[in-house]
């Protein structure tokens, strides 16, 4: 029997994998992908509860999360490209200036 707890544990594990990616990696593209993993973990939770409670609102929230993820990816990758053009690096440890 798969209970919501199982989905919560899966979601928590995926979330933490994303957090570890953000904390440990220095390539900013990988960090962005880790953030996508975190957002997916949130969506799994929302949809598992939508299933459990037989209520479609969880799925509506997940649609918003996906929209926000798309916006975040577009702007974030734009920043990465602009930064790379000036500094020729994607290492966040080298991104230590507020302007250049």
């Amino acid at each position: 029997m798969i209970t919501p707890t199982h989905y919560m544990l899966l979601s928590a594990a995926l979330f933490i994998i994303g957090v570890i990616g953000v904390m440990v990696r220095r390539n900013i593209i990988i960090i962005f992908m880790s953030i996508e993993l975190i957002l997916n973990a949130v969506n799994i939770n929302l949809i598992a509860y939508s299933y459990q409670l037989q209520d479609v609102i969880g799925q509506v929230f997940a649609v918003f999360v996906i929209a926000v993820a798309a916006a975040e990816a577009a702007v974030g990758l734009g920043i990465i490209l602009a930064f790379y053009r000036n500094k020729e690096t994607v290492n966040i440890d080298e991104m230590n200036l507020m302007r250049w």
Binding site: R26, N27, A73, L77, L81, T89, V90, N91, D93, N96
Partner: peptide
């Protein structure tokens, strides 16, 4: 989009070479 950026960002040195 990510794949595009990875391909456009043509790195000459490894991205993880430097560590603060």
């Amino acid at each position: 989009l990510y794949l595009f950026v990875v391909m456009l960002v043509n790195l000459k040195r490894l991205p993880e070479a430097f560590q603060d």
